[in-house]
Design a protein around this nucleic acid. Sequence first.
DNA 1: CCGAGTGTGTAGTGTATCCTAAACACTCAC
DNA 2: GTGAGTGTTTAGGATACACTACACACTCGG
Lengths: 117, 117
Amino acid sequence: MSDLGSYLRKKREALRADDARFSIRQVAARIDVQPSYLSKVERGQEAPPSEKTLRRLAQDLGEDVDMLLALGGKISSDLAQIIRKRPMLFAELIRDLKDMPDHAVLRIVREVRDGNW
Amino acid sequence: MSDLGSYLRKKREALRADDARFSIRQVAARIDVQPSYLSKVERGQEAPPSEKTLRRLAQDLGEDVDMLLALGGKISSDLAQIIRKRPMLFAELIRDLKDMPDHAVLRIVREVRDGNW
DNA sequence: CCGAGTGTGTAGTGTATCCTAAACACTCAC
DNA sequence: GTGAGTGTTTAGGATACACTACACACTCGG
């Protein structure tokens, strides 16, 4: 399906080059899953883990949570909740932004943040 | 949980006042589920239906799909896909817009649509 | 009365999700 | 050569999700 697995493997192996604490077994122990499970996830033999597990993994590997969740086919539950509170409004906005280039969306983000509204 | 059930019931009964085709049984037949299932959903005795079923329901009842999905605790899969393609970008934007009033968000929507970007 | 239609109660089912537990085969330092 | 550590294989399994199938009890027109 997605390449969450290979992404995780690459990232972990990169970390492991400098720090032996990033073996499958030790990472698995820290994020509280079985090493066999993590191994399968990294090789794409298992479906992506739950949001909870992906969050712990992101934290342990120093990765962005939203990106890792996306690779796992999920959306952060706090984002989902925000959208669900005003579904029509956000649906319209997001569909409009679908084909906008990153820099255009970023400009909106900045404008919003600067409080020009 | 949510009030999807009562919302559906109210809407269907309103339609039924003018049109006998909006009985539980007939709606259920059109959207291709068992009447007992729809009955339970309307009374909140069953978890919300799948996206597919909610879409058919929305169409049959003339309701907004995104809103009905939201009441069912779901987000349209096309929106989810858009977000998953640029997760960090959209995550930032959505979290920034969380506490903005509707009219402010709407202004952004309009600006985007008018192509001032 | 009866039959066509209404809503509902009960029981069960297939599939997906998200993992665990235990053992196997290997390397590498000491 | 043994013990600690590595990744992996195999065999499940608990729980939730999204329903179906069928029968029951009621109403109401003809």
